[in-house]
Design a protein around this nucleic acid. Structure first.
Lengths: 121, 121
DNA sequence: GCTACGCATAACTACGAGGTTATATGATGG
DNA sequence: CCATCATATAACCTCGTAGTTATGCGTAGC
């Protein structure tokens, strides 16, 4: 049941409705109604999406009279961003190496069948 | 039911087992067994996780005899990365502005109760 | 003060995700 | 050949998610 912060952030971002809300919030803080307007769904559904974003720490809410002002907190996303950026470096390296290998092999007239059979590790 | 590429990538990243596999794949391509080893779960469970990664386009598979070599394809992640980086710019701007405002207000001896009451928009 | 507004919560449905065990499939090696 | 290995697939269970309608609750405004 334990979900790490990264889990919560990534799964919050995995829904187009919630990404839409975050995109809207890039324009500035608003109330729930404004956030809900573009999305064709019931008000409680919107409320649930906001709770997901809130549990991931992606938004902050300030009650202001009867309306709730919502604003983005970009900090949890940076954890996600950092994770991606970190590993992307290695992945690209990996990917490019394989890419180069495949390209090189394609150039040979008789591609060796078993050349990859014995690899280190 | 339609899930965009971004949905698939983000939700694939939302699971620690799958992130663990991608982290392992940063070291180099391997077979399924090696990928499964560190994770305490049944082999079919691992197989399912790989399918999720595959559907998101994050890994590629080459059958090589009876084993499947798995390697990362970093390209779909870049879409996710781009989305994050794009909006992070605006969010930070937003966040920092609110932050500065709150700090400024905190400095006043008599924080005005209704100063935020009438805001543009 | 009453009504309407802005939102949350409750209770329900439908479905997918993540796990299991059991079984199938195809390649390897003695 | 036959047993075994590497992996996938099937069938099932459980739980969380995304949606619904109905209802509650505090604030605004006339």
């Amino acid at each position: 049941m334990r979900s790490s912060q990264l889990d919560l952030v990534f799964s919050a971002l995995a829904d187009p409705t919630r990404r839409g809300m975050l995109e809207r919030l890039a324009e500035g803080e608003t109330n729930v109604g404004t956030l809900a307007a573009p999305h064709d769904m019931s008000q409680p559904a919107v409320s649930k999406h906001l709770r997901v974003l809130e549990r991931a720490g992606l938004i902050q809410r300030t009650r202001h009279g009867r309306e709730h002002r919502i604003r983005v907190d970009p900090r949890p996303i940076e954890a996600a961003s950092t994770w991606i950026e970190h590993y992307t470096r290695f992945w690209k390296q990996q990917f490019d190496a394989v890419d180069a290998y495949l390209e090189a092999r394609a150039k040979q007239t008789h591609p060796p069948q078993r050349s990859k059979e014995r690899r280190k590790r």
